[in-house]
Amino acid sequence: MIHKLTDVQSINIGVNTNVWQFCVILPSAVIGSNCNICSHCLIENEVVIGDDVTIKSGVQVWDGITIEDKVFIGPNVTFTNDEKPRSKEYPDLFLKTYIKKGASIGANATILPGITIGEGSMVGAGSVVTKDVKSFSTVVGNPAKEINK
């Protein structure tokens, strides 16, 4: 289901994926099957999203971000792809960010560019992730640090 109040320019969207109102999906984005893209999301061109992914409202997925299968992205998670952003000045290449299979990112977390969030890991709400997150770990805080579960 693609809501009538969206701007979906990509034809690379898998079966049983829902895209809710007020979303923009650019032409080269690839989105898998059985995903849920909630309202007010933006997905740029150089983005790959796997199967069974949930992206809650208010998330922008910028060029250079790969989200693997069964990932949960909470509301208003902020991704970045430029280490030194300046108005009207763009890097030759955007840093690559990888969210591995089964990871979960809590609401309002910020993910700096060039980060890998490991398989099955958990990023706590409001955390600021400044370095890679190990698989099956939980990180919280600013800057995000690993805690015992």
Rank of each mutant, 00 (worst) to 15 (best):
I2N: 00
L5W: 07
Q9L: 13
S10M: 08
I13Y: 05
I13G: 01
T17E: 04
Q21V: 11
C23A: 04
V24G: 04
L26H: 13
L26P: 05
P27R: 04
S28G: 05
S28I: 01
V30P: 00
I31R: 13
N34E: 09
C35M: 06
C35A: 08
N36Q: 15
N36R: 14
I37G: 08
S39D: 14
S39E: 13
H40I: 09
H40M: 08
C41G: 06
L42F: 14
I43M: 03
E44G: 07
N45V: 07
N45C: 12
E46M: 10
E46Q: 15
I49K: 09
I49R: 08
G50D: 06
G50I: 10
D51N: 15
V53A: 11
T54E: 10
T54F: 14
K56G: 00
S57K: 00
G58Q: 08
V61C: 08
W62T: 09
D63E: 05
G64N: 03
E68Q: 13
K70Q: 12
V71D: 02
F72G: 07
F72Q: 04
F72I: 04
F72P: 01
G74C: 06
G74D: 05
P75Q: 07
P75I: 02
N76E: 10
N76G: 03
V77C: 09
F79K: 11
T80E: 11
D82N: 13
D82Q: 01
P85M: 06
S87D: 14
S87A: 13
K88H: 13
K88I: 13
Y90D: 00
Y90F: 15
Y90K: 00
P91G: 05
D92P: 01
D92H: 13
L93K: 15
L93P: 00
F94V: 10
F94K: 15
L95I: 01
T97K: 04
Y98A: 08
Y98M: 15
Y98R: 14
I99E: 07
G102D: 11
G102H: 04
G106Q: 06
G106N: 07
N108E: 12
A109I: 05
T110Q: 02
T110Y: 05
L112A: 11
L112D: 00
P113C: 00
G114R: 01
I115R: 03
T116I: 10
I117T: 01
G118Q: 10
E119H: 09
E119W: 02
M122P: 03
M122K: 12
V123K: 05
A125D: 01
A125V: 07
V128L: 14
V128M: 09
V133N: 02
V133S: 02
V133P: 11
S137W: 03
T138E: 10
G141H: 09
N142A: 15
A144E: 03
I147F: 06
I147R: 10
N148W: 06
N148Q: 14
